[in-house]
Design a protein around this nucleic acid. Structure first.
Length: 524
RNA sequence: GGCGACUUGGCCGAGUGGUUAGGCACCGGAUUGCAAAUCCGUCUACAGCGGUUCGACUCCGCUAGUCGCCUCCA
């Protein structure tokens, strides 16, 4: 065993219970997360899965495992085809653009742990083989160029989402008439004239929605792997169908642990439920009220804009403050507050850097990379005893189904403890590096870094005052403050002061322009 | 109609059968030339009604409300 101390427990959607995490082939852990269909720009809801799984992978490695994480890109499907028709450009171009957008957003949020990002269109042969296999084994049938999965052949069908085929509302659509039973779903869809297509034993066509995940996960992670994740909305039909396809094709379970993250809701202020909701709903703008659940079809705003305004770190922190399985109510005030909360850490890191000369944002503190390596003896140092306790609490929280919210609260206690220590020891910038107080401080921060690295927080220097827009606004206000001071000085004929302000600003690269209607400024 | 999740203090959000979550905001104090920051402290809780129990916010039931999925939304 890589780490006999690991007591990680994970909530498994399939069994609806928290289970001890036991990988199939330790120390290896295979993780597959359903990625986006790249037909439009991503919104914040698309980041919940990536951020939590990025954290899960970091934590698994910290716990001594060797995780491999796959996120697929679905780059061919009906919505892409529609978009292509709308915009008059090829499907591939839309996919390329939107994939780039998605990747840029991931990068901003510090999601950098993905090992493979397979694209459906790169796995066509693989997908077709999978469908052929299912047909041969009698789980699927071809009708006029389409191939459907026969849900009646799978006695376990519905186990993940706990549904009964007979209870389901029927489905319309042109393909319905071809199906043996209404619950059957498409594995392969025949191409209409002019549509993007690939050759197959059933004629020209494209894959159905779910099959690409079954084919690609098998290719990279094997017929059975450890963790499969995605948003709660994918549980049915997407994951149910994947599970059915792969299970029937291989005669064994596809996945050991199914993990589903909660969905975001666009947020009016107030509670999600309860009495106050009626009022808060009334306060919401019609746009907000109509939005409800964030989804592409309802037009949630571009994520890149949000990142520019709030920074990726802030958004990541905001997501990690809540447990991954709960609904996150998302609004601007929430992000704003997350930013305020984060400030406290930035100030601590500044204080510490003053004293030690070490930056928290790089690897200056040389944190341990695994839990085993990070074990240490605090001796009878009061600070380090506390640190050891915080570290233990943090790990317990993470072991309990990735309770990042609780883990973050430990960080806040830790923060206070560090500030208290700095207040009491009165350490300042001249402190000797080998002074016992400084040595303890460095150790404490090293431990903190060890854990914040798991959450992927504080890995880069914070942009001052938030994103670009916020910084611009702040700069503008600051310059106007100086303009006002200069005006007051000139009004009492203190031209020396007035000119000093203008000249000094000019040296910085800010030109003041005196006009009839007042003074403005521009970057020179 | 079927399946499922949820309801914690001004707001956001953890958690537990009897013991301080945490954050933001507020208030009091320490510190500070003033302010900020920091520290200390206080104050607002577990939707309603029943039941189990020595004891429930935590378990069970009912009621009310909110939310999600039910063929292509992460």
């Amino acid at each position: 065993m890589p780490n006999p101390d690991s007591k990680l427990r994970i909530y498994n959607t399939l069994t609806k219970a928290k289970e001890d995490f036991q990988p199939l082939n330790p120390p290896q852990v295979g993780i597959y997360l359903c990625g986006p269909t790249v037909y439009a720009e991503s919104h914040i809801g698309h980041m919940v899965g990536p951020v939590i799984f990025d954290t899960i992978k970091r934590y698994l490695r910290y716990s001594g495992y060797e995780p491999t994480w796959v996120v697929n890109i679905t780059d061919v499907d009906d919505k892409l085809i529609n978009k292509s028709r709308e915009r008059g450009i090829p499907v591939s171009q839309i996919a390329t653009e939107m994939t780039a957008d998605y990747l840029a957003n991931l990068r901003e949020l510090g999601v950098n742990q993905i090992d493979y990002m397979p694209r459906a269109t790169d796995h066509m042969g693989n997908i077709i083989r999978f469908v052929e296999d299912l047909v041969e084994k009698g789980f699927a049938y071809a009708v006029e160029g389409d191939v459907f999965f026969d849900v009646t052949k799978d006695p376990g069908y519905g186990q993940l989402s706990n549904r009964n085929i007979d209870d389901q509302q029927g489905e319309g659509g042109g393909a319905a008439a071809k199906k043996r039973s209404s619950g059957d779903f498409a594995l392969w869809k025949s191409a209409k004239p002019g549509e993007i297509s690939w050759d197959s034993p059933w004629g020209k066509g494209r894959p159905g929605w779910h099959i690409e995940c079954s084919a690609m996960s098998r290719e990279i992670l094997g017929e059975t792997f450890d963790i499969h994740g995605g948003g709660l909305d994918l549980m049915f039909p997407h994951h149910e169908n994947e599970l059915a396809q792969s299970g029937c094709c291989h005669g064994k379970p596809m996945v050991k642990y199914w993990m589903h993250n909660g969905l975001m809701r666009a947020g009016a202020k107030g509670k999600v439920g309860g009495k106050s909701d009626r009022e808060s709903a009334a306060e919401a703008t019609p746009e907000e009220a109509a939005e409800g659940k964030i989804s592409r079809s309802k037009g949630a705003g571009g994520l890149s804009t949000l990142i520019r305004r709030h920074t990726g770190t802030r958004i990541r922190f905001f997501l990690l403050r809540t447990h991954y399985r709960s609904t996150i109510l998302f609004n601007d005030e929430g992000l704003e507050e997350a930013g305020v909360a984060l400030e406290g850490f930035y100030r601590l890191f500044d204080r510490v850097e003053e004293i030690t000369g070490k930056s928290f944002y790089d690897d200056s503190f040389e944190p341990a990379r695994t839990r085993a390596e990070g074990e240490f003896d605090p001796g009878d140092n009061e600070l380090l005893k506390q640190v050891d306790e915080f570290r233990g609490k943090f790990i317990v929280a993470m072991d309990d189904d990735l309770n990042t919210g609780l883990a973050v609260s430990v960080l806040f206690d830790w923060l206070r403890s560090m500030n208290r220590y700095l207040d009491e020891t009165k350490l300042a910038s001249g402190a000797k590096a080998d002074a016992p107080e400084v040595v303890a401080l460095v150790t404490a921060m090293q431990k903190m870094k060890e854990l914040t690295d798991i959450l992927g927080l504080f890995t880069k220097v914070p942009a001052s005052g938030g994103g670009d827009e916020a910084a611009q606004e702040m700069l503008d206000k600051a310059v106007h403050l100086l303009i006002d001071l200069r005006k007051e000085a000139r009004e009492r004929k203190d031209y020396a002061t007035g000119d000093t302000i203008r000249n000094r600003l000019s040296e910085i690269g800010i030109a003041l322009l005196d006009k009839k209607e007042g003074t403005t400024w521009e970057a020179s």
